[in-house]
């Protein structure tokens, strides 16, 4: 295929363009929908207004949902980052069979269908009285976020040369000093990326949250989930737009950090 014929080129680019448009454009539909003036969703809106943004801010239920989401996401991120970073370092040092076995365990929450995890965790949370609490949901989300931390920190650890550690040890540094002065500065971008992925994973998560959130602790996705099924007003589009903005900002940040880290280790 050294000389790709023109028709094939046009066909490939045209159809790829269409597929990419299919991937990206529909997501943006909620943004104009959130600026509807009417009390129902019309697309494109017949008249524009920001009244549903005001309604979102004025409504204590939506505000509380946003706060509950942030609360749960912070718990999930802290737990996933601390356990995940330590686990990634442990995996990096473990050898052979243990390594692949434990990697399988750490990535398992990614493989088990989330509905199965949700039902299982819900049942046990009921048993121990953690259902309907921010801590219960935060721990469940930490479970789903853990693989992202293990993967991201694991990748970052490959950039830490064994020689640096030996040099530090040779100069008399203890394990904690070595971690603090050599390992940690070099894997920080990986940890931060893992933290951002954890935060977004928790912030976006619906399935486990629908079961575990309970009445008093509804997160933003749970509130959206319920509102979609009850009413179809533009305030849901406002909440969805806020989620898009947050995700784009956080991922841009993650991309930026991993890029700058890549440049440094390269």
């Amino acid at each position: 295929m050294s000389k790709t014929p023109l028709w094939l080129k046009i066909l490939a680019q045209g159809s790829a363009g269409l597929v990419l448009a299919f991937l990206c454009l529909p997501i943006l539909a909620v943004i104009p929908a959130s600026f509807n003036k009417a009390s129902f969703i019309a697309l494109p809106p017949l008249a524009y207004s920001s009244r549903w943004y005001e309604a979102f801010i004025a409504d204590a239920e939506w505000r509380n949902a946003l706060l509950a989401s942030l609360h749960v996401a912070v718990i999930a991120t802290l737990v996933a980052v601390v356990f995940g970073t330590a686990a990634a370092m442990g995996l990096h040092r473990a050898d052979g069979r243990w390594r692949s076995l434990l990697t399988g365990l750490f990535l398992a929450p990614m493989i088990v269908p989330v509905i199965v995890t949700a039902v299982a965790v819900y049942r046990s949370a009921l048993d121990v009285g953690l259902s309907g609490t921010p801590v219960g949901l935060g721990l469940a989300h930490a479970l789903l976020a853990l693989p992202f931390v293990v993967i991201n920190v694991g990748i970052a650890l490959r950039g830490v040369e064994e020689n640096w550690l030996r040099a530090a040890a040779g100069l008399g540094a203890g394990p904690w000093t070595i971690f603090r002065t050599v390992t940690l500065p070099n894997i920080t971008p990986g940890i931060v990326a893992g933290a951002i992925f954890s935060f977004i994973t928790s912030f976006d998560e619906v399935v486990v949250a629908v079961f575990l959130a309970g009445y008093a602790n509804k997160t933003l996705p749970v509130k959206i989930w319920e509102s979609i099924r009850l009413e179809f007003t533009p305030v849901v589009a406002v909440a969805a737009t806020l989620m898009i903005i947050l995700a784009v900002v956080l991922f841009a940040l993650a991309q930026f950090l991993t890029k700058s880290a890549g440049r440094r280790t390269a």
Binding site: I27, V206, I224, W225, I228, A237, A240, M243, V248
Partner: peptide, 16 residues
Amino acid sequence: FPFWISVLVRTFSWMI
């Protein structure tokens, strides 16, 4: 880009 956006939000878009 779509990877980054919540599945719930994307599904809601399709409902509209």
